[in-house]
């Protein structure tokens, strides 16, 4: 019983670490633009597909290797970063001065455009993600089995999150990003190229989503153009749960959500899996709208 519980926790952690990568993108974009980037889940989907095609192009599916995994990750991350640049430049930037709701509608439009163009280009049937890295054997502690692949996925996510933490808190770029998220106008008065920083933030967040796409492809090797819809919404919930705009919060929220989902599926009602995230969202918005780590900001007239 306790063993089964632990097993669910392990599964939840690896799922949660992937959610965390996507949730980070949400939280970063929200930080600088105050926009819920609805297209984020679909950027993650595109990342998975770029990974799929690059792995096939370099023939990494023949033999499992760590190099293959890292090259695939690199391709997926740069692919989704490039896509994010285009989205930001052509869909969001012209609307910087427009009412917020217009931006929201555009984001929804971009999301659906990616989903259905994806179906047109890649075909709507699911594809088998090439197994670029298949570690052999499980680690077992007594009866508890830990899949090495899950550990690798978890490790890579932690690595990427650490990298992000470093960029945001230890570099000039990160300081500029934090300044922009604090106040656009003041930041640009201080000589920070606001547009450029927003664009870069978008690209970094989307690169993380692209990496998540490849990692998901490793654990659940079935990808299709609509795969980003649910994770996209759920990771938004994770970001809100942790306090949107807060990097640590996004990671913690995503881990909680991943584990809660695994436990729900394991013990109670697997068919309600997709409803859980929304139930959490509604509860958190009712009782603690700023999230677990958020700070309360008063609205000024």
């Amino acid at each position: 019983m306790a063993l089964e519980f632990l097993q669910h926790l392990v599964n939840g952690l690896s799922l949660g670490s992937i959610y965390a990568l996507i949730a980070l993108g949400y939280t970063m974009v929200f930080g600088v633009l105050k926009l819920i980037n609805f297209a984020h889940g679909d950027v993650y989907m595109i990342g998975a597909f770029v990974g799929y095609f690059s792995a096939r192009f370099f023939r990494f599916d023949d033999h499992s290797s760590l190099t293959g995994l890292f090259v695939t990750l690199g391709c997926a991350m740069s692919g989704s970063a490039a896509l994010a640049f285009l989205i930001e430049r052509f869909a969001y930037r012209p609307l910087r001065k427009a009412p917020r709701v217009n931006l929201l509608i555009t984001a929804v439009g971009v999301s659906l455009f990616l989903q259905f163009t994806g179906q047109l280009v890649f075909g709507s049937d699911p594809k088998f993600f090439p197994q670029v890295y298949v570690p052999t054997g499980d680690w077992s502690y007594g009866e508890l089995k830990i899949n090495v692949l899950q550990v690798v996925v978890f490790g890579i996510s932690i690595l990427l999150m650490g990298l992000l933490q470093f960029i945001v808190f230890k570099t000039r770029l990160g300081r500029a990003m934090r300044a922009v998220s604090f106040n656009h106008d003041l930041a640009s008065l201080m000589g920070i190229p606001t547009q450029k920083i927003i664009s870069i933030t978008f690209m970094i967040g989307s690169a993380l989503a692209g990496a998540a796409g490849v990692l998901v492809g490793l654990i659940y090797p079935k990808i299709d153009p609509l795969m980003g819809v649910m994770p996209g919404l759920k990771c938004f919930v994770a970001a809100v749960l942790g306090g949107i705009g807060n990097i640590t919060g996004a990671v913690v929220g995503a881990l909680i959500l991943g584990m809660a989902e695994e436990l729900l599926v394991g013990y109670w009602a697997p068919t309600y899996r997709d409803a859980l995230a929304f139930a959490i969202l509604i509860l958190i918005l009712l009782f603690r709208p700023t999230g677990l780590f958020g700070v309360n900001r008063t609205e000024k007239v």
């Binding site: 869909a91 012209p94 609307l95 427009a98 217009n102 931006l103 509608i105 555009t106 929804v108 439009g109 971009v110 999301s111 659906l112 455009f113 989903q115 259905f116 163009t117 179906q119 047109l120 709507s124």
Partner: peptide, 17 residues
């Protein structure tokens, strides 16, 4: 595929812009 969704979403983006 549901082709009109591509057109709807494009329409929405262009409309907003």
């Amino acid at each position: 595929i549901d082709f009109r969704m591509i057109i709807y979403s494009l329409l929405l983006i262009v409309l907003m812009l």
